[in-house]
Design a protein around this nucleic acid. Structure first.
Lengths: 195, 195
DNA sequence: CATCCTGATTGACGTAGATCAAGTTTATTT
DNA sequence: AAATAAACTTGATCTACGTCAATCAGGATG
């Protein structure tokens, strides 16, 4: 489990053997079965979690009770309601497992102590957040400028794994479409291909 | 100029007097007049810029030639095509000045040297990016879940300064609406108020 | 003072995608 | 293997918002 985490961090910054050991000490492993919640809206999100295996979804429920998925976290990604985690306020997202999932969790106190004891971790997270920001920016542009079909095609190109592993209705929710619409879009695409 | 920058950083991390001096040495000031470009699509975005005065917009032009504003940068905010800046690839955003604007610019080499010489700057940017990520996440949720009217109302509540300083058609572009639609929405809102 | 130019408003009309509803297929659970 | 639930498809209809086009108001600019 821990190797996945360490390997992921080593891609961005260097850590001594000792730092690696210290780092690991801040994390606790946890297993989630399918459909199990990691964070529930209105709880406080006490942990930042690194996915070593499986797949999580973060989603928000609007006033009408509709779910809107804001992100998927595959192996090698982090998951958390960042606002809740860093501020200590109530979470506005739910996070649950789409597949059987294994994670490594760190608490806020742990996080803070970790960045003090291993300062390059600030750099690691600076780079991580910086990259996420670029990705999120792209999604925002896509959400506003592209048609439903374009959004789906882009996602399928950039993230083929997701399309394979995630049920179609969740993909629809992720790109902001009604499931029926996505179904029709896929039909169109494939009928166009075969002609 | 520099005081605005230093003050802004000191809100998040501590800097010694010496570090402050070193920090300043990495930045060069620049003035932009109204409508002047800071970054043009297809150029490489060579700088990360901190706005000390004025107002910038970052926008993306789609295949049909439509502009989509992705962010405004007021005093105290940063502006850049982050992807282009950090990767050295061509920019996909344009950035220009809505008002007369003064900025402080740092190059990528400067940025890298700065984080090595003043390691807490990694922490500063970690926190900055972390907060931006939360904000961007919120916008994404809003873009997908809210109606046109809700989007406008939220923006007006969270960011009244923007509404005052930015022409309405640019606000429309920012929330992903046709200018006509925003005009009608405002009319509805005010007619409802007066009834 | 006249003329641009940029931005805002209003109306008529079109369309992408949502919603509702029914039926079918595919997974889980027992 | 039966039972139940979740996921996907298809059709009919509705609506929020976009598009096009004309008009209007207020600053700049000559």
């Amino acid at each position: 489990m821990f190797e996945v985490l360490v390997a992921h961090i080593l891609e961005k910054v260097a850590l001594t053997e000792e730092e690696q050991t210290v780092l690991k000490s801040f994390f606790t492993p946890k297993k989630l079965r399918k459909r199990q919640y990691l964070v529930q809206e209105a709880d406080i999100c006490k942990h930042l979690s690194f996915v070593t295996k499986g797949l999580l979804r973060s989603y928000h429920v609007d006033e009408k009770g509709e779910e809107h998925i804001s992100m998927f976290s595959l192996e090698g990604w982090w998951a958390s309601d960042m606002y809740s985690f860093f501020s200590g306020e109530k979470a506005s997202f739910n996070i649950d497992a789409i597949e059987e999932t294994e994670i490594l969790m760190i608490s806020l106190e742990g996080f803070e102590e970790m960045t003090l004891r291993i300062p390059v971790m600030d750099r690691y997270f600076r780079i991580l957040f910086q990259n996420s920001l670029v990705t999120k920016e792209r999604r925002l542009v896509s959400a506003i400028t592209h048609t439903a079909e374009e959004k789906y095609i882009r996602l399928a190109e950039c993230n083929p794994t997701l399309i394979q592993r995630v049920p179609q209705n969740l993909i629809a929710s992720y790109i902001g479409l009604a499931p029926e619409t996505l179904s029709r879009i896929k039909k169109n695409i494939s009928s166009r291909k075969s002609s």
